[in-house]
Amino acid sequence: MTAHMANEIQKLKSKLLFLCSLVEQSLWKSVKSLRQRDGQLAKEVIDEDVVIDQNEVDVEEECLKILALHQPVAIDLRFIVTALKINDDLERIGDLSVNIAERSEFLARHDPVPTPFDFDTMARITQQMLRDSLDALVNTNCALAVKVLKDDDHVDAINKEMYDQVKQAIIDHPQYIESLIHLLSVSRHLERIADHAVNIAENVIYMVEGRIIRHKTEEYQ
């Protein structure tokens, strides 16, 4: 690899990692705002999304530049393609964190629903999945990526459980229906974030091994 391309790839890596940290922080804040009924923190998440969007565009431009100017092959090519795809997932996770923040802003302005909902476990697993998928990316660690694929089943199951609980709560406390629907949405957003973490993990496996395991992850595990 020419020193020139090595520099460009290093620059892309730094930009991508910076975006990773922004997205992780956004998710963390949105979950905290929900837990602590903190409307101000939720607003911060919503306002800061524009920074994530700008960084997403920067990363994409950097990828396109390297493709056009250096025509990378093999591992370099797979890294650029992976960066492009992960970039999309990160931006979507940013948007979903904003969605969670919007729900928590609403919930903070209204009375708490009488049935306690425990988002902690779901949020914790989802955050850990995102962290693991990003660590797998940084350390090109396929084993960690595989762990992310497995953890997704857990989040899916909790999301399904949450649906049943909310359904029951609506029957029991119909006056809270709006807040309850917002809570259900939070659960769905967390579940979608976990799916994006899975996408990131799958792309890491592609980058390291050159195999596309999407749609057949069960065979892979």
Binding site: M1, T2, M5, V73, A74, I75, L77, R78, G210, R211
Partner: peptide
Amino acid sequence: LFTNPAKKATEDYITGR
């Protein structure tokens, strides 16, 4: 060969390492 070479030597050569 140009996306996922099987041998390390091939990869090192085609990526200019």
